[in-house]
Design a protein around this nucleic acid. Structure first.
Lengths: 296, 296
DNA sequence: ACGCCGTTGTCAACTGTTTGTCCATGCTAT
DNA sequence: ATAGCATGGACAAACAGTTGACAACGGCGT
């Protein structure tokens, strides 16, 4: 709780400028005493300091202020294997373990739960029958408020790392071949299903390049051109992913009319301008893509 | 988010020429303020730098522009281990390999380059002396237009997966202990340094939970409450990360006044309301944190 | 060789905007 | 009393924007 003079001394910003920033950009809104005197708290000091360094970094004061004011976090889950909020599918033992560990934000327990899941049979069956259901259960629990974003974050990040390990471990069997590109449209961050599919492709002996989440349209285009790819597979997990995916498809069609462009994921069926739609279970998606490649 | 003056200084292209290039070739399309002032983002800076180098290389401005417009993406690099655009540090053999592989968007080559890097001595030395420099070189190459976002994406995603593997492989030695929380403030996606630090903590025998990128304020708070943590470490890699980090700090301070809150990263020194600032080389950061924990 | 012409970087003129600072006046705290 | 604070307005200097012009340069046809 500081007066404006103290705030000025603590931030190195002149008193007049403090008032100007408040008046012009609303960067802080200090509480007032009965007489109208400004009283700054530590959060206000922090915001002012952030403003100062941003400006020192070359930002225009207006932009810096906008950035600071708009830095309020939006909480959304990273999982979203399936956006369908329906059918509470039977929670397996493994998924219950993962959800409970996530609820406690208990790192080691999350790892143990993933150990259990990844120990279930072949990679493809494990992903389809255990990992994805567990992640859906996690998303549901988050939606019901039983798991906090922190737990959801930690668990899905850990699952993503595991999947990444599997992807790397799968090697690139057909390394000489032209690869299949797998990635997500701009704005989409639902990596897990896409990375799972890319891994399954590799395990099936195909060469796969995983582009990652939130891939800009231009990057799809240049990636196709540079790498001389056999096909591009775009993940469309939620309805919000659709416009981005459609834009990617038209951009690719435009410059590579003969390229095989496939889409997969819950909302892919609704994108009719793709070459093909991949079915849902991982194994089926892989065989479908293989058939498409042989035909072309 | 820079004014035209700042953009000019950062790229070494005169203000008049910036406007001419925009008007004549549409090489950038900065957003405008209400009053019509141009606001350049980092992607625009990258495009301008790329243009400058191409022209310096003898390309005609028109051709250089055509090349950039058709190639460059509008997205940010994921790397950003270090936001300082200066001091072109000596490229090691390994970083050159990674940059070249990324330039070709060549998945297998990227993996091989990372194999080379990860084979360099102890984890900590490898990260400090080879991985981070390589990623900085990658970001620089992106800024110069030598690497497309697709390649940057692919390479940094692969590096992130490797780091994730190392994190998991490091196990959680002090599994019973209260953990140290490591994560990034809301809005920040510069995972690599944070995950590297979390891994180093585990390898030093401490219990570490990695929260991930873009962690909302509320998640930080609940994570601390649920897990009974010993300390929270927040990565502050760029000036833009500061407001979010400051908000996280005040929120945590508010409800857990005794919690040890440490910040690390290029711009962490400017956040004086944290309990402690962690120094730069990985090993030093780990020992600094260990000392802080013993004191408390 | 010569003139023509498009390209390209730079400049000037003029208008409007942003931003840090300052002032006059009046109230408040000690 | 004296120093501190608030408000609102005012200002100058720096910044930006647009338009049009212009000189240097190189390619090209004659």
């Amino acid at each position: 709780m500081y007066t404006i003079k103290e705030a000025s001394q603590r931030t190195g910003v002149s008193i007049a400028l403090l008032r100007a920033w408040e008046r012009r950009y609303g960067i802080v809104a200090p509480v007032r005493t009965e007489a109208g005197y400004r009283i700054y708290d530590d959060a206000a000091i922090g915001r002012i300091r952030a403003m100062r360094t941003l400006v020192a970094d070359g930002w225009s004061p207006r932009q810096a202020a906008a950035n600071i004011v708009s830095t309020q976090a939006k909480d959304f889950p990273l999982t979203a294997v399936d956006a369908q909020p329906i059918d509470p599918r039977p929670p397996t033992e493994q998924s219950r373990g993962l959800v409970e560990a996530a609820a406690r934000v208990d790192g080691p327990a999350i790892e143990r739960a993933l150990d259990d899941i990844f120990a279930m049979g072949s990679f493809e069956r494990m992903v389809d029958d255990h990992l994805y259901p567990a992640l859906v259960a996690l998303g549901d629990a988050w939606a019901r408020g039983e798991v906090d974003v922190a737990g959801e974050h930690a668990a899905s990040a850990a699952a993503l790392r595991r999947l990444g390990m599997a992807f790397d471990a799968a090697g690139n069997a057909g390394a000489g071949d032209a690869p299949v590109l797998v990635g997500l449209p701009p704005g989409s961050r639902h990596e897990l299903p896409a990375l799972g599919f890319a891994t399954a492709l590799r395990r099936a002996g195909m060469s796969a390049t995983y582009l990652g989440p939130d891939v800009p349209i231009r990057s799809w285009v240049t990636a196709v051109r540079q790498a001389h790819v056999r096909a591009a597979v775009i993940g469309v997990l939620t309805a919000e992913d659709m416009p981005g995916a459609a834009a990617v498809i038209t951009a690719l069609r435009d410059r590579h009319p003969d390229l095989l462009i496939a889409v997969g994921g819950r909302h892919s069926r609704e994108l009719s301008d793709a070459s093909a739609h991949l079915p849902d279970p991982l194994v089926d998606a892989v065989t479908a893509l293989r058939r498409l490649l042989q035909l072309s």
